[in-house]
Nucleic acid binder design. Structure first.
Length: 249
DNA sequence: AAGTGAAGCAACCGCGGCGTT
DNA sequence: CAACGCCGCGGTTGCTTCACT
């Protein structure tokens, strides 16, 4: 895929990377590590700008980078993190070390955002859009967390996890603190299978496909059930929530 | 089989933050 | 403390592939 190749006025190559260029970049970084991107292209024998090399390395060539389809678990994590962080793709990518921020951003823009919209969720606020929201009732508090689940619609239920994270984030005083807590949550296999082995991931994907084949909608995977939400709450031990949306700035 | 629009993805562009001078 | 340059991030573009008519 990628873009057609062309050259800048100064002879810098643009567009799609060739295998030979990839090899040169990998060989150089293997030997010398990632250093000053400005001078790296020259030293590596590439007619590219440093920015382009950096992008290629981070999004495509670096070790451990995972390509291909996102699992339902990964999608759930992206949605939850997006509800807390917004479009801070680099921050979200920190919680998913085998995915690049570009990959996550692309998947969000091309797939998840549309799916949320179809489900009646505003992808910016992660709240139900006005004409799909029948009653704006508090769905959760620290004393009563189970009573409203029986009649919840899929979109309402889906938005609750987003709502939860937003409130959690509001209660957290600093950005680093926030990141650390979410890292802890995500590193717990009971909460998500994001760090599972490849085979397990494939197994989960198969399960996902089976469930879809039996009549569930893809959107159904965007929901956390009441038990998961309660566990999530217990783990992070946030006792007091503010009322405004999270903003790291 | 050909045409067309949607989806997916790699890469570029511009801006803001931050370190250095 | 202002000016400058580099890096990283987020938004956007452009190309390919796929699905549908």
């Amino acid at each position: 895929m990628g873009r057609a190749t062309w050259y800048d006025a100064d002879g810098t190559k643009r567009g799609e990377w060739t295998e030979e260029e990839d090899q040169k970049l990998v060989a150089y970084i293997d030997e010398y590590g990632v250093g000053d991107w400005r001078f790296l292209p020259d030293k590596a024998g590439l007619r590219r700008c440093g920015k382009s090399c950096r992008l290629r390395w981070l999004n495509f060539l670096r070790p451990g980078i995972k390509k291909g389809k996102f699992t339902p678990q990964e999608e759930q994590v992206i949605i939850n993190l997006h509800s807390a962080f917004g479009n801070r793709w680099a921050l979200i990518a920190q919680q998913m070390p085998n995915r690049s921020d570009n990959d996550i951003k692309n998947h969000w823009n091309s797939c998840l955002k549309k799916r949320l919209k179809r489900n009646g969720i505003d992808p910016v606020t992660h709240q139900p859009v006005a004409n799909n929201l029948t009653v704006e009732t508090p769905w959760f508090n620290t004393e009563c967390s189970t009573s409203s689940s029986a009649t919840a619609s899929p979109s309402y239920s889906s938005s609750r996890s987003a709502h939860l994270l937003n409130k959690i984030a509001t209660g957290i005083s600093s950005r680093q603190h926030c990141v650390d807590r979410i890292k802890n949550i995500l590193s717990d296999p009971r909460t998500t299978n994001i760090h599972c082995h490849e085979e397990e991931g494939e197994e989960l994907t198969k399960d996902h496909e089976k469930i879809l084949a039996s009549g569930f909608q893809e959107e159904d995977f965007l929901m956390w059930d009441e038990e998961e939400l309660r566990r999530f709450m217990e783990e992070i031990s946030v006792m007091e929530f503010g009322t405004t949306s999270y903003d790291c700035n």
